[in-house]
C-alpha cells in the first residue's frame, strides 16, 4: 500500500463504524425474523410450505 494511504488508514479509528454496521445488521435481522414470524403472515407461509406438493407435478 502507498505509505501515505497507510498513514491515513492508521490515523483514523473506524471502531464506531464497525459498531454502527453491526447494530444495523442486528436490527435488520430482528426485523426480518419478526416479519417472517408475524401472525399476519402465518397463513400465507403455511400455504407456501405446501408449494412442492401442489406444483402440478407428476406424482
Amino acid at each position: 500500500m502507498n505509505p501515505l494511504l497507510r498513514e491515513a488508514a492508521e490515523s483514523i479509528s473506524l471502531g464506531w463504524l464497525a459498531g454502527l454496521v453491526t447494530a444495523f445488521f442486528i436490527v435488520w435481522f430482528v426485523a426480518w425474523t419478526w416479519w417472517a414470524f408475524s401472525p399476519k403472515n402465518k397463513e400465507k407461509f403455511e400455504e407456501a410450505a405446501r408449494m412442492p406438493l401442489s406444483d402440478g407435478g407428476d406424482s
Binding site: 426480518w32 414470524f37 403472515n41 407461509f45 412442492p52 406438493l53 406424482s59
Partner: peptide, 23 residues
C-alpha cells in the same frame, strides 16, 4: 426444500424458518 417434501409427501416443517435460514 423441494425434493424432501415431495418424497416425504409432507409440507415443509416451517416455511418461516426457511426464510430466516436462507437470508
Amino acid at each position: 426444500y423441494y425434493f424432501l417434501p415431495r418424497a416425504a409427501e409432507r409440507p415443509v416443517y416451517s416455511y418461516r424458518l426457511s426464510i430466516v435460514h436462507f437470508w
